[in-house]
Structures are given as C-alpha cells and as structure tokens.
Design a protein around this nucleic acid. Structure first.
Ligand SMILES: Cc1cn([C@H]2C[C@H](O)[C@@H](COP(=O)(O)OP(=O)(O)OP(=O)(O)O)O2)c(=O)[nH]c1=O
Ligand SMILES: [Mg+2]
Length: 667
DNA sequence: GGGTCCGTCGTGG
DNA sequence: TTCCACCACGACGGACCC
C-alpha cells in the first residue's frame, strides 16, 4: 500500500565505497525498517553486562595459573566454535544435519583471518569473566543464604500477584521473510538452496539452504563452502516493504493498535477482537495466517499466549508455517517455562547463556533452584529479568509510544588510512545521515563516529553540542574533529550517529540557528514525553511504578491468610527481624513480606545509623555488583580480609544493607 | 549523594 | 579473484560535575 517507499532513487554514493561484487547494501532504500524494539517493555536482559564491565581495566591479570589456564584452553576451542557458528545457529531446532561438520567448516574457513583473531580475543575475555564470576560463586556457595531466599521468595510472590492473564497476545513472524519474497518472483528458487544477501553477508536463507547450515548472519563466502550449490540473491528492499505493507493491512483488521517490530514481525492484542466472535484464539490466528497467505502467498508462524515474552517464544515452536497456543493458566505457563531453554527467552543471547550455564542454569525452571545464588551474583535488573523468565511473565500491553533515540549510518569498504580519503568518507556519510534525518524531520545534539580497524576492533567517539544540528556540513565538521584525534588509523568501516534527538519544531526547514537554540530550550521542557516518566534514569521503575510515595502497604491488616487456616504451627525465626515466631507457613510468609516493607527498612536504617556506617561499607565488600553498585569508592577488590573485622552483629548489618539496596531497586 | 556524558558490551532482526 | 552487514536499543561502569 504505502508507496512512500519508492521515494528517491538517486544514489551518488554507491560507486566507490561499495564494491561491485557485493553491492547489495548500497541500495538507497536500505533504511532498515521502522523498528520498534523494546522487546517487552523492558526488553533485553543483558545481565552479562554486570560482569562484563567489571574488569574493563583490571585486565592484565597476574593471578591464576596453569590449572585454570589449562581448563580455559580446553573449552576455548569449543566456545569459539560456537561463537563463530553465529547467533541463529542455535535457534533452528530441526536440523537433521551434522552440526559438528558445519562448525568444522566454518572454523576452518575462518581460521587465521583478522576476524577470527578478534573473535578469539573476545572469547578469551568472556572466559575470563566467567572464571572470575565462578570465584565469587565459590566464596558464597557455602554461606547461609536463607535471608536471600526470603527476600527472593518475597519478590516472587510479588511478581506472581502481578500476573495478568486477561490478555490474548499474538506474535506473528513471517517465515524466511526476504527469501520467501524472492521466491514469489522466481518460483524456481523454491527448489534450490538459496540465500538473500551477498558474498560478505547473508541476511537470511530459505529452508532448503538451512538444511545445509546456511543461516542469517553468515558470510556468503563461507555459506558456499557449506553448500556449493547455494544460490545467492541480492537484497530488494522495496519488495520486502511492499509485502510487509500487505501483511500489516491484515493485522490492522484484527488489532488497529498492533505493534510492528520489524518488516516481518508484529504483536497483536486479540483480546478485543475475540469479544466479537465465537472463534477460539487459535482459530482466529489460523484465519489471520490464511488471510496473509491469500493476500501475499507467503506463510507466517504465530504464538498465542498471555504476554509478549511467551507469545514470542511460542511463535518459534512450530516455526515453518505453524502456530502454537499456550493456555493462559498459571499451571500451563509454569509447566511451559520449566523445561524451556534459557536461550529461547528473548534477550538471552549466546553470552548470557554461557554465563548462566556456568552457574548451573540451563532452563527457566533451573532458575528457581539457584535463585539465592543468582540474587547474589547478578545485577538487580538482570535478576529481576531472570525471575520473570522463570515465572513466564512479560508485558501485556502493546504501547508503542517510543520516539527514536538515535539515527546512524555506517559502511564497510576496502581499508583506508589516508587522511584525505578518510575525511571524504566523513563527508559522504554525513550527507547520507543528514538526508535520513531530514526525512524524519529530526535534529540532534550528539554526534558520534565509529571506526572499525582492520583488526576488527571497534572504537567509538562522541561529542555533544549545546545546540541542535542537522545539516551534513555541521555533522561532518564535528565528525572530522573527532576523527582527527584518532589518527592515524587503518579502518575497514566508518559510521556516524546522531543522538539526543529532537523533532524539528516546525515544518519550515530554513531555521535560524540562533533562534532555534532559544526555542529549543522552551520546547525542550514541555514537549513530548513528559507524561509518565519520572526523571529517574537507571533504576527504571519498570512497569510497576510502585514507588509513588512510600507507605505503599501501611494497611497491613487487610486480610491475612487467604487460603489455609489450618494450624500447622511451627517455630520459625524471621530472617529479617530475627524474632522467633510461632505460626504456619502462609502466616510466616506474610510476616516476612511485612518485614520487608519500606517502613521496616526505614526503621532498620535509623538503627544502623546509630551504629556507624563504615562497618557497612566494609561489610558490603567485594560481593557487590549485584547489590551495592554505589558503595566502594575504594579499591574495588577489597579482599576478603575486611570481612574478618566484622563481629557477630555485623552480619545483621550487612544483611540490612542488602535489604535496603534491594528495596531501592525493586520497590 | 545526586546528575550527565562517554565508551563498551550484548542482543535482535 | 573475493576473506564476516547494517541499524537500533538498553545496561553499566567510570569520569566528571556539582
Ligand atoms: C536475523 C537477521 C534478519 N535479517 C532480516 C532478514 C530476515 O528475512 C528478516 C526477518 O528476520 P527473522 O524473522 O529473524 O528471520 P526469517 O524471517 O528470515 O526466518 P524465520 O523467521 O523463518 O526464522 O530480517 C537481517 O537482515 N539480519 C539478521 O541478522
Ligand atoms: Mg521471520
């Protein structure tokens, strides 16, 4: 439908940068697409970050020796092979092909290249990080973690109460999208292994090629070694956009507020539509997929579930031209996640999987048994994410209100080190970026450049300006300043990004800069997003937003026990207040919950103020990263000795500090 | 003790 | 012959400023 796609076909850029062989990326219409990202409102887990950032500079390790080294070497090749195999290698289940053979071919084809060396470096770094995390694990594995257990269980109950099963969310995903579209125009492609992309990179492949191990993100020259008869087709974005538009027209009929994630993917909330029909959710989705096929002759796969996270997982289960319905019942969902590989959870990638595996977590169900350890080792955000994965929780709303945060262009070319040539690249890229910005009527304050050296190491530099800019000249000037400081370099890729964006105030383009500065300030504060977000940054209140004003649960006595009132009294000691209590389990849980309210913590904090703070500071020592994140201004490696200084009561203080930090994040 | 900016990493399509 | 894309986002630590 929307034929705004064809817009302009003038592309002065193609000739020099993009080589003749793989010119598929120089299509002017290669504006990826209108992505939405924000996977489920809080999207990716990314908890490997917590560990990753830690030893940025603490490298050059002197410690550790042959035994661990030896170990690392053993696994090294294995993990590296996995890494080289690529992201989408894991996903596809139905292979019936020799995975080892495929990995071997990829490994052999890569060995010795600069790319390979770089991957090897990254893999070693990851192995090292995991080793260090395992050392932290060793330190705490024998400790008494009942307190952590209680805190985590409290959090789990909280999350369970927040479970929303009222919505019918559907994730729809076209099968081998680009490849399938190409097969429409040339049906003979259906009968041969085929991939879309070029010699340097494939974007996707048809299912015949996948049988040979050819997948998204694989370079074409390696794919050919894997499958010599592979037919490669260059990209044709206008066709994909046209097909996507047809599909979206159908989505619109079932949910006018559907949320497109990419050209070939979208979430639909079918709740409202289901009230207008007698059909079951699965039948409705069958109908949608039939309509898609009638309209485009393309097949789609779908998952139907209570929230976005599990719906997306479900859409992959019967992938080629199939669908999966997961009943919106707690038991069904828990059964589903129990044996679900953690890797299937959107946001858990190759690295996170490796880290979790080292901690004994392979499936979402494994998380529960490791919850206390994970609580100690992961960042609060990551840990929260893991709990939600275990419980099968996710966003149930499709609110897409999200303005773009950045816009960028980048190009790979034959290595350049000549200064004049580099500056010319800046000019070309700046021009492209300025065009894209103009298309969306955007300006920005921050310009960053990205340089990928011939060694494949990446360097990024940024500069923020006091005023908003958008012209190619302004962009190029700043980018060149940034570039000068990096010379000399020999690079294979250059990129330029604009961020700190702001929509062009009016539609008139010829803005006077000086005025725009002033008006910016005015508009800046009252425009756009102001509505729901507090200025809080990192500790994002997620969705719960319970913060408001504290005193959330002052009314403690609403109703104590909902379920059982049978007297199974036991002598229990609350790990929070240390009091001995005689009550049954539900009562005890309730008590612990109460103990964990902010009011309680405040009292604790006051008490602890009286007792001196520096004890807490040292008590929190090295375990940090998951809980502290703010203390140790000192050396980050305060050895375990500091712990010795703590008396008996210090243990309590340490616990209380942890509670405080937990509630800071989670409530 | 807050805030912002910068650079890197992980993830997904 | 050729030797691993391009785009967007969130998390996080460190540097730097109050
Ligand atoms: C994964 C990936 C996809 N794409 C493009 C090509 C894909 O056709 C399109 C959709 O991505 P996907 O939905 O991930 O893959 P697919 O549709 O080709 O195959 P299937 O869903 O059946 O597993 O996005 C890239 O350009 N780069 C990538 O790394
Ligand atoms: Mg798809």
């Amino acid at each position: 439908m929307e034929d705004q796609s064809v817009d302009e076909f003038e592309d002065q850029y193609s000739s020099q940068v993009i080589e003749e062989e793989d010119l598929f990326f120089d299509d002017p219409s290669f504006d990826q697409d209108d992505n939405n990202h924000f996977e489920d409102g809080e999207s990716a887990a990314l908890f490997a970050q917590a560990v990753a950032q830690h030893n940025q500079l603490s490298t050059h390790a002197q410690d550790k020796d042959d035994e661990i080294q030896g170990q690392a070497q053993e696994v090294s090749e294995e993990t590296l092979r996995n890494r080289l195999a690529g992201a989408s290698a894991h996903k596809a289940g139905l292979d019936s092909l020799d995975k080892d053979r495929v990995n071997q071919i990829i490994y052999e084809a890569s060995k010795g290249s600069a790319f390979f060396e770089n991957e090897q470096k990254k893999d070693h770094a990851l192995t090292k990080r995991i080793d260090e995390m395992l050392q932290r694990y060793d330190q705490i594995k024998d400790l008494d973690l009942t307190l952590e257990q209680s805190i985590v269980d409290h959090k789990i109950r909280e999350l369970e109460e927040s479970r929303d099963l009222t919505q019918a969310i559907c994730h729809l995903d076209m099968d081998a999208f680009y490849a399938s579209v190409e097969e429409l125009d040339d049906p003979s492609l259906k009968d041969v292994p085929m991939a879309v992309g070029g010699m340097s990179m494939l974007c996707t492949s048809n299912y015949l090629a996948r049988k040979s191990g050819v997948r998204s993100g694989m370079p074409g020259f390696i794919a050919i070694k894997l499958c010599p008869s592979l037919k490669m087709i260059p990209l044709h974005f206008p066709k994909y956009r046209a097909a996507s538009a047809k599909v979206r027209d159908i989505f619109k009929k079932y949910d006018p507020d559907f949320l497109p994630m990419s050209l070939d993917e979208a979430y639909l909330n079918l709740t409202k539509y289901l009230t207008t029909t007698d059909l079951s959710p699965a039948e409705v989705v069958e109908q949608i997929r039939n309509e898609i096929f009638e309209s485009t002759r393309l097949t789609a796969s779908a998952g139907i579930a209570a929230n976005r996270m599990i719906a997306k997982v479900c859409s992959d289960i019967n992938k080629p031209n199939g669908q999966y319905f997961l009943p919106s019942e707690p038991e069904a969902i828990m059964e589903f996640t129990k044996n679900l590989s953690i890797r299937k959870v959107p946001g858990v990638g190759r690295v996170t999987q490796r880290v979790l595996e080292a901690l004994g977590v392979k499936t979402c169900g494994d998380i529960y048994g490791r919850r206390a350890l994970l609580y100690r080792l992961l960042s609060p955000i990551s840990f929260n994410f893991m709990l939600k994965s275990y419980l099968g929780l996710g966003s149930t709303s499709l609110s897409s209100e999200s303005s773009r945060k950045s816009m960028s262009v980048e190009r790979t070319f034959n290595p350049i080190s000549d200064r004049a040539a580099l500056r010319q690249k800046v000019d070309q890229l700046s021009e492209l970026l300025a065009q894209d910005l103009a298309k969306d009527g955007l300006r920005g304050k921050t310009v960053s450049i990205k340089l990928k050296l011939t060694s494949f190491t990446v360097r990024a530099r940024a500069k923020t300006f006091p005023s908003y800019i958008s012209s190619s000249k302004d962009i190029a000037r700043i980018a060149k300043d940034l570039l000068e400081k990096e010379l000399p370099v020999n690079i294979r890729l250059m990129g330029i990004r604009m961020s700190t964006l702001k929509p062009q105030a009016n539609e008139d383009q010829g803005v006077k800069k000086y005025f725009s500065v002033v008006t910016n300030k005015i508009i800046n504060d009252d425009d756009g997003n102001s509505n729901n977000y507090t200025p809080m940054k990192r500790p994002r209140p997620d969705d719960i937003e319970s913060g408001t004003i504290n005193d959330t649960s002052i009314d403690t006595d609403t109703e104590m026990q909902g379920t059982s009132s049978r007297p199974v009294l036991m002598d229990l000691i609350c790990p929070i207040c240390n009091r001995q209590l005689q009550m049954d389990n539900p009562q005890f849980n309730y008590h612990v919950d109460e103990c964990l309210t902010k009011v309680t913590v405040k009292a604790i904090l006051q008490e602890q103020d009286h007792q001196g703070m520096e004890v807490i500071g040292s008590g929190e020592d090295s375990n940090n990263s998951s809980t502290s994140s703010s203390c140790n201004s000192e050396n980050g490696h305060t050895s375990n000795h500091s712990r010795k200084r703590m008396g008996t009561s210090n243990r309590q203080l340490r616990d209380k500090a942890r509670i405080k930090s937990l509630l800071d994040y989670y409530s």
